[in-house]
Structures are given as structure tokens and as C-alpha cells.
Design a protein around this nucleic acid. Structure first.
Lengths: 305, 305
DNA sequence: CACCCGCCCGAAAGTATCTTTCAGGTGTGA
DNA sequence: TCACACCTGAAAGATACTTTCGGGCGGGTG
């Protein structure tokens, strides 16, 4: 997928974009010795030269400022200043060009910067996968149930427990009665209270976490609308789920536990649920959101700057 | 060859590469009106601005040269000259890169599928911004502190509280003694126990959440190594932080609360911390991870009915 | 071989651009 | 209302870039 610019490099074109190395080679024969040294340095290390001032580059190449400027002119720029800008652009381009190392697995001896890049890339990938795999019909159905729910109970343990709490926090903000349960016993005890018109949501990556399935089953048996957010749409949990929202499952490794990407995926689903419910109940949700925002403002110290 | 005195006027921030748009958003709140105008112009049209001189950009934004230089400084560059170079690089990058893929804000009447796509895209963007803006030196320092920590306390309230818990859960899994505090009183009471060799981490998007700053201050005063994960690197919280990890700030709107993207950003930072610490303490972390994984396996019901 | 001519080359003067200083103005809190 | 802090731009000051100009090197010629 290369899209090349059609700047002719032979004629007196406006500032050249990235075909600089080629231009240097083309024009080299018509250059004097000193100018060739400058051109060579520029073509060899664009990034390094971009950091240098005229004087710096002159010293580096053992020439004078005048020669540097002359070279810049010959290459088609109005002066050194513009050559330098082009150089910076070129450097940035070939900098971003080499980044395929990202796809590799995270190694024990990866430098910090690589870890950051790889993790970010992975989570981006997870998001894309999740969005692509999310069934909007199921999502819409879940949203409808939530929008009219009398009460919402959310079950999740471990890492999924945090996602459950996140969803509960959000739903509370728009005026819904939502509660997240991490304690399996309490969850079941509460599930008994649910009835038709209520919503129960189970969040489990494996789809087979008994502590989460059990309360969902109880809620299901009591007539509540049940939703499962899971990475295993064929897992046991879906038996008791009216609507199933599938999260993506990324490859994992020792330094990249499954909990990481499953959490990312679950959160996206949760955000989608929340946003859609907010849309659906906008009349009541908007003021509630504004109010909660306002209430929080006072918890921040006024000294901002 | 060049002997330049290194003026470290703030602390971190070597010239930023391409995380400029993100940086502008992050620092916008701490900018004055005029500087915001300049920053906006720069972020909006990097290529155009790269072609302008100080005077030109000052005229374009209706400000003065001094303000332009001040803005460049705030963005982390030694002066306008360097900002301009970075701008040229950025322009070249997004020229060769893909289309800007502008995303409209989420509307009240967007269909479900659109909401999913927009949210996914937004969170991906947030991840990219965060990764680009993350100071790997600060991150490395924080990792070093964590890897040798006797004890780790993590403070966070509200949405950030969940992130704090996530980090605590993860660190516990690799054998560290970590605890997340959501209760400000208990947090302070515990912070008193910290001393040199311990690590305290405060997570707050606004950077000015008193409930989180206070325990960090106490920990700081008692000699613990302190880390702040915040979207406002100039906020009050950083006063008591030995290391600051900056999360990105995405634009927000009514249907896209700040809590959403800040959480995504914070989680990436947390994942980076965790992964790097795991690397650093691989000898002890790997068996611990394996053990916790093993322990959880029994909580799943492989036998489906 | 010596001389002349052209042209490359760098030092230094000249100019544009960037940076700093400083005083006026504006909004904010008491 | 006043005082204060802080933003803001004009102008001076510093730096980086460009131009000029004369020396010097090489090649061709007598």
C-alpha cells in the first residue's frame, strides 16, 4: 500500500518530500567535492542532520556554512532552513516505517519502550476484534432490557469483578438502580429478589465461573432478563442468558495474561452498553449525568494551575 | 563535538516525537487563552504551521511571538525552532500514513452499530495517544521502585479506584505485597506505615483529587517512593510524586464522559507497569503467576451440564 | 615550466528568525 | 474598591541563516 508523490526530482521542483536519497545520487555528479560531503551526510543520517544547525553541519562535514547552504539550494530548497524541515519529515517517516517488531510476543528482555508499544498495539487489536465480533442485535436487546429495568444486578469475580463494578458505577450515574456483586453468596441471596423486568448481568471471560453462573441461574429462574458477557459463547453461562455478548479472546502468553485483553474487551462491551442505554434514556440520563458531574467537581482542589 | 549545557527547566520531556495532538489535549487545561489558540492551530494543521515562522504563526493566531515561543516551551520543546521541526515530522508522518479517519461525535440517534464503532475507535485512539505520550524513563524508574518494593499501596477513588484495584490484583499475583485503598481515611492511616523502600501510587485523572493526594503526601513525607498516574502532569498531585506517569486526555462530550477514556488510558499504564515489573522480577514472578493461574482453574466448572 | 584563468571554497559581514526582557493591561479574590 | 497575580505583546537582544567577497587550488595554455 504505497502511495507515492509525483514530484519530479530533476527539475526545479518545490521542496522534495522524501525522495531525497535519490535526489542526492542524481545530483551528485554535478556537485563539487565539499558539497558531496554535505549531501552524503544528509542522505546518510537525516535524523541526525535535522538536529544540527548550519554551523553544526558545516563542522561535521568539515566545510563551511556557505557550502551547506549551497548544497541545500542545489537540492531544490530555498535555503538550509527548508532542507532541515524536509529532513525532519523524512526522519519521522522512516522512523514510523520500522515498527513491525510490535507484532512479536513480549520477551523478558524487551526494553520498556517496546513493552509499551506492544501492549498498546495488543489492546488496540483486542478492541478492534471485539467491536467486529459484537452482535449488535444482542446488544440492542440487552440495552432495551436495561433501559426499562427496575433494578440491575451485575455479577463478576476476580478481574471481571472490576468490570462489573465499572458498569454498576456508570449505570448508577444515569439514575439506574444497579449493583455489582463480587461475593457469590450475597449475589445469590440478592438474585432471589429479582423478578420479571429486572436485569441480571454475568461477566466471565471463561464462561464457566461457577460463582458467577449460579446467581445468573437464580435470576433467570426468577424471571429476570439475563445477559452474559463472556469470551466463550458456548460456555455454561450462556445456558441461563437471554442475551449473550461475546468478548474477544486474544492469544496469551506468560508475560501477557489473558486477564489483560479480556478486561479490555469486556470494558468496551460495558461502555457500549452504557452509552446505548444513555442514548435510549436520554431524557432522564442527561440531567443525572450532569448532576453527578457537578457533585464531583467539589471533590477537587480548586488550585488548578 | 557539541558541548551544550543541558537546561532542564522542568524535569522530564525530551522533545516529543509524534504524540503532539495528545500532548496538546493533555496540557490544554493548563494553558492560557492565547496559548490555547496557538496550540489549537498547531494541532489542527501541523503541515501548515510547519511552513510558518514565529512571526507568521503569531499573526495567524492573532497573538505575539512571545506567546508562540511560550507555547512551544510548554509542549516540551526548547523553543519554537524545535517545535517546528517536530511539526514537519508529524506532517510527513500523517501524510504517508493513513487518512485522518475523522470520527464524528456520538449522537443521540446513532444506531447501535455506529456507537460500537465509534467507541472502539475512540478507545484505540486513546491507547495510541497514551503509548506515545508515556515517558519511558519515568516508567522505568517506577518499575525499578516497584520491583524492589517491600510493600505497595495504591490510592484511587471513583473510576480510578477500580484501576487501583486492578493494579493491586495484578501485583499480588506476582508475589508483591500490594493493596488498593478507596477509603481516604484508611488510606491515610495506612500511608503512615510506609517508609523508605515502600512504594505509594496515586491514580487520579484530574490530578487534583484531594482524597488521593492526601495519602500520597503522607507516604511521600514518610520517605516512600511515590508515583502519580494522572492526566494532569501539572496538577497538585505531582507535588508529592517522585515519578509521574501521564495518561492521555481525550476530548469528551455528553455521551462520552471523560471517565471512559481516562480509564482506558490508566489501564494501559497499569498494564505497562505490571508487565515491566514481571519482566524485572521474572525469577520470582513467573512461578507466582503460574501458581495463581493454577489455583483459579479449580474455580471453573469444566463439566457443563 | 611558468603563467593565466576559472571556479571552488570559507571567513566575515549582513539579514532574518528566534528568544528574552519588561512594562502595561486584565481578571480575580479579599 | 483595591491589591495582587498573571497573562500579554512590544521591543531589545541573541542566535541561526544567508550573502558577499577575496584567497587559493587546479587545469589548461604559451
Amino acid at each position: 500500500m504505497t502511495n507515492e508523490v509525483k514530484e519530479s526530482f530533476t527539475s526545479d521542483a518545490p521542496p522534495a518530500p522524501a525522495a531525497l536519497a535519490a535526489k542526492v545520487r542524481t545530483l551528485a555528479p554535478s556537485m563539487t567535492r565539499s558539497m558531496q560531503r554535505v549531501a552524503e551526510a544528509v542522505a546518510g543520517d537525516p535524523a541526525g542532520c535535522a538536529a544540527l544547525t548550519v554551523t553544526g553541519l558545516a563542522e561535521l562535514t568539515g566545510t563551511s556554512e556557505a557550502t551547506v547552504v549551497r548544497t541545500a539550494r542545489l537540492l531544490g530548497y530555498p535555503g538550509y532552513r527548508d532542507l532541515r524541515l524536509a529532513l525532519a519529515g523524512l526522519a519521522a517517516q522512516q522512523q514510523s516505517g520500522r515498527a513491525p517488531a510490535v507484532t512479536a510476543d513480549i520477551a523478558v528482555d524487551d526494553p520498556v519502550a517496546d513493552v509499551v508499544a506492544k501492549l498498546a498495539y495488543d489492546e488496540q487489536q483486542t478492541l478492534a476484534d471485539t467491536a467486529a465480533g459484537l452482535d449488535t442485535v444482542q446488544l440492542g436487546a440487552a440495552v432495551t432490557a436495561l433501559a426499562t429495568a427496575r433494578r440491575v444486578d451485575i455479577y463478576g469475580v476476580g478481574a471481571s469483578g472490576l468490570v462489573a463494578q465499572d458498569l454498576a458505577q456508570k449505570l448508577l450515574r444515569i439514575g439506574l438502580i444497579a449493583h455489582a456483586h463480587s461475593d457469590p453468596h450475597l449475589a445469590v441471596t440478592n438474585a432471589v429478589q429479582l423478578r420479571s423486568g429486572d436485569v441480571a448481568i454475568a461477566i466471565t471471560h471463561s464462561g464457566s465461573t461457577g460463582d458467577v453462573i449460579e446467581p445468573l441461574r437464580v435470576a433467570f429462574d426468577h424471571g429476570a432478563t439475563t445477559v452474559a458477557i463472556t469470551g466463550r459463547p458456548d460456555g455454561p453461562v450462556t445456558q441461563y442468558a437471554d442475551h449473550v455478548l461475546t468478548t474477544s479472546t486474544a492469544r496469551e502468553s506468560e508475560l501477557r495474561p489473558a486477564a489483560m485483553s479480556s478486561r479490555t474487551s469486556q470494558l468496551l462491551v460495558v461502555d457500549c452498553l452504557f452509552t446505548c442505554v444513555t442514548q435510549r434514556t436520554y431524557e432522564t440520563a442527561a440531567p443525572a449525568l450532569a448532576a453527578s458531574y457537578e457533585a464531583l467537581a467539589h471533590r477537587h482542589s480548586p488550585r488548578t494551575r
